[in-house]
């Protein structure tokens, strides 16, 4: 029997009995938002409901919007449909949305990962009948190493660059990845500098997460002061005039795609660290198992492969739906305007 609780429409995932949308990609009246990345929280909705921590984030990104904050597990009932937000562990303030109606329970994950990254409230398994899951990294080629090992590599890389008299430049999405790196960099090695876009977002996250000190780069920052230290910058600054000023430097990217040899070469960075805010293959399978669900809908990533595996190997009722979520691609392609570049 097909559930009528959540439907995939042209505007997004719609809940007919409540008349609300989850992470819609076209303007709607009432939007329940999982997290602050641009493919999940878009322009033009009349009302945004999201976790307290995500509220200042989307207000920063979208400007003057009508947003309402909600706590983890807090009950939000609309027309007898019970909604609640639960930690997704993807980035600070990211939620899964639980939807319950007449005993039927669905969970929409937005984006998520199982590992505790130290800055986001850790992912929490939720029992449900139906599970709407991302699968950005939904093939068995993706198996993340524990983050401690990756951060050891990153800190060692920084230390070597410093010894060689070079500045280390880490490319990271301004919301989430940048702060996760920041949290685990070893401040004993040197000073951490940030690009303006990253500094602004970090400032907002500092209100609820403890993070090491950073120095924003401005046009008055003397070049000599930065030498040998570390810069966190958005990927779009790669090859920019802004970055060239800090020569000599070495670049690195931290992303799940760095597991592929081709990806690092394509980005033309000197070093790739495999570090993702999305679940890897074992993580996705574990999440599905822990929900105890019977039905799975894969929304973005390798949806066909992932849902086929769930059908054939785990006996679940699984299918792929096309959405306009972009997973890591949107994060990689973050654009930074040139005015935020210097100031």
């Amino acid at each position: 029997m097909k559930s009528q609780l959540l439907r995939f429409t042209k505007k997004g995932i719609y809940c007919p009995p409540a008349g609300v949308y989850l992470d819609p990609w076209r303007p709607v009246e009432k939007a329940l938002i999982t997290h602050g990345h641009s493919d999940h929280s878009r322009w033009g909705h009349q009302q945004y409901i999201t976790h307290h921590h995500n509220k200042p984030i989307i207000e920063h990104r979208l400007g003057n919007i009508n947003a309402k904050g909600i706590a983890w597990g807090e009950d939000l009932t609309i027309n007898n449909v019970k909604f609640s937000f639960h930690p997704a562990g993807h980035i600070p303030g990211s939620s899964q949305i639980r939807v319950e109606h007449k005993g039927e329970v669905w969970v929409f994950t937005g984006d998520y990962k199982l590992e505790n990254d130290g800055i986001s409230t850790p992912w929490e398994p939720l029992k449900c009948h139906g599970f709407i899951s991302e699968c950005t990294f939904g093939i068995p080629a993706f198996n993340w190493r524990p983050q401690e090992e990756v951060f050891d590599d990153i800190n060692t890389w920084w230390m070597h660059n410093k010894a060689d008299g070079r500045t280390s430049v880490l490319f990271a999405y301004s919301l989430g990845k940048a702060q996760r790196l920041l949290k685990h960099l070893n401040p004993d090695i040197g000073q951490i500098y940030t690009h303006g876009a990253i500094e602004n977002m970090t400032e907002i996250l500092r209100s609820f997460t403890e993070l090491p000190p950073t120095i924003q780069i401005t046009k008055d920052t003397p070049k000599a002061e930065i030498a040998g230290n570390l810069i966190i910058a958005p990927p779009s600054t790669h090859g920019s005039v802004w970055l060239r000023k800090f020569t000599p430097f070495v670049t690195a990217s931290a992303s799940g795609w760095m597991a592929f040899r081709g990806a690092r070469r394509r980005r033309a960075v000197d070093r790739g660290f495999v570090l993702s805010d999305h679940a890897d293959w074992p993580g996705l399978l574990q999440a599905v198992k822990e929900t105890g669900c019977e039905r799975v809908i894969a929304t973005h990533g390798y949806t066909e492969v992932f849902s086929r595996y769930l059908r054939e190997e785990m006996g679940l009722d699984a299918r792929a739906e096309s959405t306009e979520y972009e997973g890591d691609t949107a994060e990689e392609q973050e654009k930074v305007t040139s005015d935020t570049t210097v100031e």
């Binding site: 093939i139 068995p140 080629a141 592929f260 040899r261 081709g262 390798y302 086929r308 595996y309 190997e313």
Partner: peptide, 17 residues
């Protein structure tokens, strides 16, 4: 790797090598 052959093949097409 304890995965079905079709899944290996799909992964291969995505990885490319």
């Amino acid at each position: 790797a304890s995965i079905p052959l079709w899944l290996f093949e799909e992964s291969y097409h995505i990885v490319g090598d």
